[in-house]
Design a protein around this nucleic acid. Sequence first.
RNA 1: GCCGACGUGGCGGAACGGUAGACGCAAGGGACUUAAAAUCCCUUGGGGGAAACCCCGUGCAGGUUCAAUUCCUGCCGUCGGCACCA
Length: 876
Amino acid sequence: MTSERYNVREAEPRWQKVWDARGIFTTRNDDPRPKYYVLEMFPYPSGRIHMGHVRNYTMGDVVARYMRAKGFNVLHPMGWDAFGMPAENAAMANKVHPKTWTYDNIAAMKTQLKSMGLSLDWSRELATCDPAYYRHQQKMFLDFWKAGLVERKSSKVNWDPVDQTVLANEQVIDGRGWRSGAEVEQRELTQWFFKITAFSEDLLNAIDTLDNWPDKVRLMQRNWIGRSEGLSIRFALAPGSAPAGFDEIEVFTTRHDTLFGASFIAIAPDHPLARALSMRDPKLSTFIEECRHHGTAQEVLEKAEKKGFDTELRAIHPFDPNWQLPVYVANFILMDYGSGAVFGCPAHDQRDLDFVRKYGLPVLPVVVPEGADPNTFKIGDEAFVEDGKLANSRFLDGMSVAAAKQEVARRLERERRGNRPVAERRVQFRLRDWGISRQRYWGCPIPVIHCESCGAVPVPEQDLPVVLPEDVEFDRPGNPLDRHPTWKNVPCPKCGKPARRETDTMDTFVDSSWYFLRFTAPAAKTPTEAKAERYWMPVDQYIGGVEHAILHLLYSRFFTRAMKATGHAHLDEPFGGLFTQGMVVHETYRKPDGAYVEPAGVKVEAMGERRRATLVATGEAVEIGAIEKMSKSRRNTVDPDDILSTFGADTARWFMLSDSPPDRDVIWTEEGVQGAYRFVQRLWRLAHELAELAAPVGAPRPKEFGAAANAVRKAAHTALARVGEDIGRLRFNRCVAHVYEAANALSASLADARSAKKVPSDLAFAFREAGEILIQLVAPMMPHLAEECWAALGKKTLVAEATWPALEPGLLVEDTITLPVQINGKKRADVTVARDAADKDVEAAVLALEPVQRALEGRAPKRIIVVPQRIVNVVA
RNA sequence: GCCGACGUGGCGGAACGGUAGACGCAAGGGACUUAAAAUCCCUUGGGGGAAACCCCGUGCAGGUUCAAUUCCUGCCGUCGGCACCA
């Protein structure tokens, strides 16, 4: 028995050095073994890692180390999502250059990540702000352009009229600019777009092939793409009142069955007709102006009060020339979707219903529930959106919704006006093209030169990369590129006349849409290197936060397709397996005056069942508040550095894996960390105790095992089987539980052996075998401790390089099994039978049981359900 | 507002439709110690009972089933995303 303790601070750097020196995590592209590519979403270099990173990278590292032990050539790289707004904000606030700030942060975070003992191939490190990276992005932009996947068009941005600058959605707070406080306006800018909608159908269909993605993410992506089949209908405008050039409004609808319930037509505030009308109607012009005084965020627009403006134009119902519908301009109609115009059927659409209640328009139900009387069926506060039978709809009466849609489409398709059908069936997607222009400095320059005679001209390939100029000032708002004298003004590559560079940079989502491809050959002179790309792609396991479930993943799926179309990749889907982890959350603490206090400054004590918190510095009582996502504003962050230096990487890693299912939030608690640390020490002691009683390394296997030895082996192999299964599914919290169970069993056996004073050779062998298995099970999760214990067991090799132990399945099979016996669905007894007992024999054994006899009171049972190997239920 | 998830002891959680609460934490009791820490052992969903054992319990209200934490419907609460935060 040893009274020493495991010195984490000494041991962890020591093992990290050993791994480094042997270069065991550097991955070769020409390794003959099967490949496995595991990747965690790369971090934004904010300056310090946070607990979310610790969790994310621990999970990936467990997978990487496990797959390495299973004999795969594992790629596990790391890089930096290094462009973005915070660097510019820091530049404005602290007068530090974005580049300096970013690279300092990278250096600091790299040190932190290294202290976590992650099995990363640092030789492949990349930063997206490095011209060596973004030059390839510029090249691909040009290739995409040639391939017809890039487009320039107008779109809306948040404009701060005081700062004269474009704002991100997060910089708009309650409709006002975050710095100036000025009311934000929408402004139209001509911007660059990637034509992601060219792949709408394919991006949607291919979701079905992503078997190793969470269902919820697949569903979210499907909904985001939002395919709907509907009808595009041309409503003629009543003659006389409409501005010149406008004689009809085209609407898109998926509810053409409700056409006879239509009460109005609504068009978007930026619909061409609305604009034309506003020229002659100052009131409408004011209304449209009001609509522009929102940010561009969808959430804000849809939460805003529904408002409309009656244009006094009238549209003619396609089935009845005498039926006229009012035309409104409405703030909830989006120009981006469909044709920017809808017909409103209030009885069967909640938003339309709310709208007509406000403006006093009629509500006529045209679909009624099966069996309801159309004459008495009334719409109250809620629209009827379910299936039913058509009513009040002339030739559609009595039809189902589906049949009515068919009939309406059939009739209107045949009808022609002005040499075109009045309606056409259309497939509509909610997905919009990807606007990539950002009016900011710290991003990848868009390699285009604007010339008055030649238009937008691609920068010639030999002039790539277009490098960001470093002599920029952030003393005022706006994009410094736009006011840079020499960088901006260049001759046109085509005609040589004075021209100017595109000063917009790319959305940072572009940077992160192909870094996983670049990792396969990070030094290649082209964006990718075909052989390496074919070998490594797709990423077998991608791990990151759910908050990226839609945008980042969808953009990456698009980008990979676009790279395939331009010869830079060979496949469509970049991520074979996806796992979305939950957040790290923590209790909040507040002083009586309401101010938040950091956990590091708070002492929490248990008072029996209750807990109370006090300030360490003053002893002042602090209120324990809600558990929330770690954030600076709530001051409930825990600095990974503090944890790593106090308890070590293994403790932090173990705790991150142990407490919650990885796809759910984990609550960081001081007690939990203490518990993890205790287990680190316990396992270290266990290894040393085992070493005293276990057979030496390489001892011959006994021919037979006694009961005690068998029990030890069984515990170890059971854990081995379960951990293997659960790591494969990333159920790390269960792996942890299995390790605890194995350790508990082994501790108990050791105690027995010690009190018996003599350890027979079969048991000594079992101790060695079980000890090695246990350490190997722990190794992916707590790699430093595992090396230390491995050495304590007398091994001269590294556990990081050891092959995963072989399972003996025979040890897991029992001769007899004990089945729970239920009476009327409630467990009342157990029955032990032979493993392969026939159902009949099981029934007989169950009927003989005393509690069953008692319950039956001499009657025959109504039914007996025997679920083989699981349970027996007697229905009395 | 729309889309998606989640809700189980004092706490984190476990449970192919089949024994609800594995495992950990906390708490209580005990051993060791001059004492504390560390360690080890025992108890621990609620209620009833001397005990055998019984009753109640997985956010709420229903439903399907021999059997529901699990499937279905509705509601309540919390969280994530909503296209310029990353």
